[in-house]
Amino acid sequence: MTGIYAENSEGIFKKSVLEAASYASRISNGGVLAVCIGQPKDGEADKLAQYGVSKLIVVDGIPAFDSQAYTAEITKIFSANQVQHIVLANTYEGKTLAPRISVAMNASLATNVVDFPDTSNGFRIRRGVFSGKGFAIVELNKTNKVIAITPNSTELKQNPVTISIEHSQAAAHQINTEITATSKAAGKIPLTEAEVVVSAGRGMKGPENWKMVEELAELLGAATACSKPVADMDWRPHNEHVGQTGITIKPNLYIAIGISGAIQHLAGVSSSKVIVVINKDPEAPFFKAADYGIVGDAFDVLPQLIEAARASKN
């Protein structure tokens, strides 16, 4: 049996969890067991079943995230069910838990995984390295394996099964960390999971001009991002900074406005399926990495795009 850790985002299983389910279902030869901590909302378990999860165990009794308590409960259940392969989404929470679970289960660990394994000669996975500038084929040597997959990297394929749901009461844990405050930008699409990203750079001339960027993003159902100089100048929050020292993303569509395309920026976005570059400098290096390009001023091009996107929506 293959296991997944189903990250519970206020009772919801996000697309990244369904990708983990789909991945596990494809590599499993005997069902998929999902572990989730805290009660999911009604109907959420059925979403997992659509992607091949045959059994869900809900852990009750851990009130808030603590990586040690979570790891202890997750590994207890996987060990009891003889799970050897564990798949997680490479989200912030997944990245925190995957290493701990690998130690607790004496497993090989692969993070940032972008493809299904090749099992024709050992168990080999493909993972992103050098911040988007390369890939590595890595053989996982131990019997147990923990695989954290990058969102938007692997095919999400339905495989409907019947799901059974059980509950497990957590043991009493010594809790070493206490969450004292949480702030979340409401209604925003997390950048790493967004299928469309509209990103802008210094060419926007100032933070007051981002309204146009946000308007286009909203019309396209996109998340917004920015280049490093823009984050460094505090025009935009650093959590929007994509690139080598920011976030690496791989959306279906990346639209870069007024970004020249330094190698460090390309590193973070070059795995996007389609790249659109809008820049008034025809020599901007980003055009070499683009699928579609518009040589023109952002202040001239953006209103046209907004109008066209709005017209086609109606």
Partner: peptide, 9 residues
């Protein structure tokens, strides 16, 4: 735990 076999650009 793992062995790097090959790299790709």
């Amino acid at each position: 735990a793992s062995t790097y076999r090959q790299f790709e650009t």
